[in-house]
Design a protein around this nucleic acid. Sequence first.
RNA 1: GGGCCGUUAGCUCAGGAGGUAGAGCAGCUGCCUUUUAAGCAGCGGGUCGAAGGUUCGAGUCCUUCACGGCCCA
Length: 493
Amino acid sequence: MEEHEQVTARRNKLAELRRLGCRAYPNDFQPRDLAADVAAKHADSTAEVLEADASQVSIAGRLMAIRSFGKAAFAQLQDRSGRLQIYVTRADSGEDQFAVFRQLDLGDIVGVEGKLFRTRTGELTILVERLCYLAKALRPLPEKWHGLQDVELRYRQRSLDLLVNPEVRRVFERRALMLQSVRLFFTARGFLEVETPMMQAIAGGALARPFVTHHNALDIDLYLRIAPELYLKRLVVGGLDRVFELNRNFRNEGVSTQHNPEFTMLEFYQAYATYEDMMALTETLVAELATEVVGALRIPYGDHEIDLTPPWRRVSMKDAIAEQTGLARDAVDDPVRLRAFAEEQGIPVTVGMPHGKVAVEIFEKTTEATLIQPTFIVEYPVEVSPLARLSDDDPSLVDRFELFIAGRELANGFSELNDPTDQRQRFEAQLEARRGGDDEAHAMDEDYVRALEYGMPPTAGEGIGIDRLVMLLANAASIRDVILFPQMRPERP
RNA sequence: GGGCCGUUAGCUCAGGAGGUAGAGCAGCUGCCUUUUAAGCAGCGGGUCGAAGGUUCGAGUCCUUCACGGCCCA
């Protein structure tokens, strides 16, 4: 393959650097300072103060701009903290080092040491006395002004994206801060962080299609988990009354701005609590995270301003449907009339589909996207909630909620079903649904029922989609903007 | 899965109604010791996503495919 002219030019400069006595990839330069620290420390230092200060600073990073004159040059050096201008002159750095500098390109990594001064325009700058070439960028960087715009290239070559688009780094710094805050929040409340299997013989805990893999030595198929739920509740049976897990789930479904096949889920379980306690805990958690990460409770998201100030609205699914569609509440309660409405609206409902599931279908199609401000939808139908405790008031419902913000589901929580007999019957009902063609129905898990038979305390639990929460707090439109390496089709040669 | 849109130099983008492929940045050569997207002068760089088709002639029109984006399911 023919090498690009710009790559050839850079290879030639690398050869010239060797000729000048540089090692090609040295590793003996240790920067003592960071660009942003230096800038902060000397933000108010006048030219005279800097002149009188004999101390040296040393930073290392990537050359992101070079403005070169004959015997001197300004350049921008970028490290993990930010950028600082350097000034290299033949007089101050010496003939040999200046010759090295002249072989450097945008993107090259160097270390410099020298004294600070202020330029004519007042910019804090290092006058370079020692210059160490550290690594060559053999490929040219994207354009300095527009950065890398092509979203396909940005996702496929995240290194380059991070390098030239500083706002991308900020999103992932925000994400890291949020994860750290989540851990502090739960550990401060007595929750134990645990890790449960990602490879499971039965993919339980949610209604979704799993990825399948194979264990050679055991000669068994295993599933990548779609949820950690059933393992976390086994731990509650075992006396770990408060547990949380913050890690990846895998679902073998489509890719979109809202879905990546692997995504990060927070799940937590608290004994002697109810789903109402979980709603209150969620309000506190999200409000705290927003304050921590964004610094405000009213946050911008796309065209909206979201107000995360607790408490949030709570409304039953059927009331929400009635409110949105204009149907009378008794029509929503009536299986025949509700089904007729679905068919009239072109919402696909199958012949044997139970009333509760028809309601959920209608809710998802008509109402979900309208829930912009934080809203807990409560009173979920039992047919779509095989792991949730029955409502004491209405046996067709369970003590469950989902949280919607900006038209998207962010969390799902409920009082846990801890009656092993009921749990077995629910699994059997799911098997029936599966035989009826529902390939997302929950599988039977005998081992889990056996665990429940030892007695699980009354418990409530919840899952929160972390990527979506990061999207909200980082004002990102696509899940790919908050996942470092989103799933893409492989490039074809 | 369906609809719409995109794919042109390393990057960011133009390319009217089919008639020899353009700019800026980046690169190369030269000048330049206070620049800020530095400046000035000159030069090089293209399988126009791929494959077919229509046409005297296709970046441009048609078909299929690939990859991506947005919307819908």
